[in-house]
Design a binder for these strands. Structure first.
Lengths: 338, 338
DNA sequence: TTTATCCTCCAAAACGTTTTGGAACTGATT
DNA sequence: AATCAGTTCCAAAACGTTTTGGAGGATAAA
């Protein structure tokens, strides 16, 4: 590997001059600069980012810390799409991306700070972390700039990006109400997720607007899992046969719900309308295809990266961003003829 | 940030001793070692990997270079699952993972070597690259250790991991033959993919074994895309109404094929049996659900990482690995009553 | 007592950059 | 002739580690 010294020697100048020539400083003659550039190319020289980072104390590297990067994530692709967004934005802005994945086992060995400092990242994007995760406290105490995905907390060095979950959920439920459904249940995620609380709030707001009393037994938790949702839906529908529509806090859970309903012998969507949340790939392929609230996960990642780099470069701008959802009508929700 | 010097000063020893104490060398008194460890912890010291890498000329970092990391990849999840495998294995072995994504635009700016050297990766795993990609030549010329996914090329510094595509394809087609299908067409990917050639070979081998002549017009290319596959399937089925079964070189293309057949008014699987390849999530959810040849993409990534680290650590072992496929029977393939 | 051996420790060099604070020249202005 | 202002260059320090090649002292062996 050619170093800056090799270039300097061959060009007959000092390393200082090579450095300044290549970095576009004005105090070097254009002729020497050209010569140096030529020689650099000739020697196939490219500066060691290691050495540079060491002296500049800047790595131009951000980390995407995901808790539980598992193959199961394939089903909703949340992580992957966020990753794509982060990657694209980081690329555009000249940042490197390192992937940091943890699980509870790893978390006991290394603190958040260690993880970040070791990997020499300047800032971090956090995805897939629960509100009761011990890392969350560390993030808030640490001075490493950080953007949280789907956890609305803000501080000097912390910002967040999320979706307008309440609005989205409200839209979904209003859609069902407008179709004439009176008994609308909800399959929620779990209470350690901000998004679940928000979506529940949206569900309640929609009912309230129509003066329909909130029935607590109409809301069950499916843990954002297909199987759990299937079980819970089965129980729910058995206990409350009057239910004619379901709002699921995730499409994946809606898949579980569909399966449960089918197993009970219901014809969908005639006997049960379902609206999901996320707009995952599957939702377009299931039978019936799923009406859903689309959220832009790619943009979630992209905006998170934008916010983070702003933070890193000391720009005084908003430290949070809330994205809007889009309603997508498919086959799974139709008028109620109950 | 505390440096090694701070620790040394506070402990009243030299930096050498701190370094050697913390790195487990034997030439330091256990009492001093304990003291140093205490102080290091107290100061929340963790060594700068930058400085270390600079002097050791080792970064313990591998790169996953993916060509075209796009959101469209969500549909088959190939990249994501490989990524999970790479990530898990790298984590186990103590390597860091940086994500390098390119596209044709970026490739014109930076050569493969530049990309790798700049990012200071010791080795690379290449995924999603076509056989006519200019990077491939560079890889072979470069001395950076590299493992190719699904491109069986080997050299001193290059290995590969792939799936036994021929076997898989042959199994698929034999399954259809055993169901009594006589006119089996194939929707292949494109000629710039090794896997396509292999799968075609498997298709031909299966026919050959049953003494069925190979009919060139029965094989069309769907470019691994759902839409293209849909168009090509429609054309194919119109031109050859006798076709009763389809082997698709990817599940995604099978989805396109299913759509094409449905649009033509065919009842599936009664009028057309289909077998795919990959076992993507969708294949279990489509109607009809798709019989397919499953390949383990997670393992592809995991094994690639294992091979790469072996290469990096100079172990004299096999530089390639071929994984086996599994056949999964679902609804889309049934007996031929033509 | 001398010599050899072991145990602890350390000063200095090295890794490949960037930045600081001038130096040396040229040409123009007084 | 002396001063000033550019322009172009450079030596040396700094970043935070690891490694090399001993030094010094204590103990054991001669």
């Amino acid at each position: 590997m050619a170093t800056i010294r090799d270039v300097a020697k061959k060009a007959g100048v000092s390393v200082t001059t090579v450095s300044r020539a290549l970095n576009g400083y004005s105090d070097v003659n254009e002729k020497t600069r050209e010569k140096i550039k030529m020689i650099a190319q000739e020697l196939n020289y490219s500066p060691s980012l290691l050495a540079r980072s060491l002296v500049m104390k800047k790595t131009k590297t951000i980390g995407l810390l995901v808790s539980g990067l598992r193959i199961e994530g394939s089903k909703d692709n949340f992580t992957f799409e966020v990753l794509c967004g982060v990657n694209d934005c980081a690329g555009e802005l000249g940042y490197e991306l390192v992937l940091i994945s943890t699980d509870s086992k790893k978390q006991q060995e290394k603190t958040y700070n260690q993880l970040c400092k070791e990997r020499k990242v300047e800032g971090v994007i956090l995805q897939g972390i629960k509100t009761d995760d011990p890392y969350l406290d560390e993030v808030l105490k640490s001075d490493i700039p950080c953007i949280l995905i789907d956890i609305p907390i803000e501080s000097d060095s912390v910002g967040y990006v999320t979706t307008n979950n309440k609005d989205g959920a409200q839209t979904a439920v209003e859609h069902l109400l407008n179709l004439g459904h009176k008994h609308i249940a909800m399959i929620n995620g779990h209470s350690q997720a901000f998004v679940s609380r928000e979506r529940l709030a949206g569900y309640q707001a929609a009912l309230m607007k129509k003066n329909i009393p909130f029935n607590e037994s109409y809301v069950v938790n499916g843990a954002f899992l297909e199987d759990t949702a299937e079980r819970e839906t089965a129980k729910l529908l058995k206990a409350h046969p009057e239910i004619s529509a379901l709002f699921c806090a995730s499409d994946l859970m809606a898949m579980g719900a569909i399966r449960a309903a089918k197993k009970m012998g219901k014809t969908l969507p005639k006997e049960l309308s379902i609206v999901g949340f996320d707009n995952i790939i599957l939702s377009a392929y299931s039978t019936p295809s799923l009406s859903t609230i689309a959220q832009d996960r790619y943009k979630l990642g992209f905006e998170a990266t934008k916010l983070l780099t702003n933070l890193l470069e000391g720009k005084e701008v908003e430290k949070n961003k809330v994205l809007q959802t889009t309603f997508i009508k498919r086959e799974s929700s139709i008028e109620n003829h109950g």
